[in-house]
Amino acid sequence: MQRRLLLVSNSTLAGGGYLDHCQENISCFFGRDVKRVLFVPYALHDRDAYTKAARHKFRTLGYEVDSIHETSDPIGAVRKAEGIFIGGGNTFRLLKSLYDNQVVMEIRRRVLEDGVPYMGSSAGTNVATISINTTNDMPIVYPPSFAAIGLVPFNINPHYLDPDPNSQHMGETREQRITQYHEEPDTPSVLGLREGSMLLVEGDKATLLGITKARVFTRGKPSVEYEPGSDLSFLLTGAH
């Protein structure tokens, strides 16, 4: 089986509603073979309200949603899932809950071995990578590890933001923070996904989708910009 991932930078784009900007991508990604999607709302505190929003949106696209927080057997829910969607929120809270409920390795197995389609947005995209070391979020809780599900061999920075030339803000830019990450040894490449962009992974092929460019940061090399439609499969092999 080959992995199938849709890794979205953000769930809401300015001027639109929840998942509006990527709804056509969602329909193409899950297709008609998937009838029910397992939603993981662990990144937000109010899981009921979050599930209600996801359930409503996915029903408009023709899918029913089962939320993992509504079952007493999270591992069993992952084992039965036709498709998986992990939403955004706080990445530390999300990863801690995934570990607490012992589903990290089961999600990995279902996606990489069984070919179950996996969609993530924001924090859900972060946890699909090697680690959450390049998240923008505050560590409001302490997961047992920063190691994530590991569906791809690189990291992602969702909501990647370019410096505002008119801003008086003197703190580090997003690029500077990623550069600091790469000052540590043996750190993987980082894909900076601007809002409005997403990465589609099908087996060993990765394609940038959406309406905005993305930037790839590799340790010891200049960053490189990529247009929507670009083939980013090199990120999956480490051949930069």
Rank of each mutant, 00 (worst) to 15 (best):
Leu98Arg: 05
Tyr160His: 08
Lys221Leu: 14
Asp73Ile: 10
Asn25Glu: 15
Arg36Tyr: 06
Pro185His: 03
Lys221Asn: 08
Thr135Trp: 01
Ser189Ile: 07
Thr173Lys: 08
Asp164Trp: 03
Phe85Asn: 03
Thr207Pro: 03
Gln180Ser: 13
Pro158Cys: 07
Tyr226Lys: 09
Ala123Pro: 09
Asp46Cys: 09
Leu13Asp: 09
Phe85Lys: 07
Gly124Asp: 09
Pro139Val: 01
Val190Tyr: 02
Ile130Val: 15
Phe30Ala: 05
Gly15Trp: 06
Gln180Glu: 12
Leu208Thr: 00
Leu38His: 00
Ile75Arg: 14
Asn136Ile: 11
Phe92Thr: 04
Arg174Ser: 14
Ser72Arg: 11
Tyr63Thr: 07
Thr207Lys: 12
Leu7Gly: 04
Leu193Ser: 07
Ser223Met: 10
Leu5Ile: 04
Arg219Glu: 13
Thr12Ala: 06
Asp48Gln: 12
Ala239Phe: 12
Leu208Asn: 06
Leu13Val: 14
Gly16His: 13
Ile26Ala: 02
Gly120Thr: 06
Glu113Val: 12
Asn126Ser: 13
Leu112Asp: 10
Gly87Cys: 09
Arg177Gln: 12
Ile156Trp: 01
Arg215His: 06
Asn90Asp: 13
Lys96Tyr: 04
Gly210His: 09
Pro117Leu: 08
Pro188Asp: 08
Arg110Thr: 07
Gly196Asn: 06
Ser189Asp: 11
Leu44Ala: 11
Val34Pro: 01
Met198Gln: 14
Met1Gln: 06
Asn90Ala: 05
Ala53Val: 11
Arg110Ser: 08
Lys213Thr: 12
Ile68Gly: 00
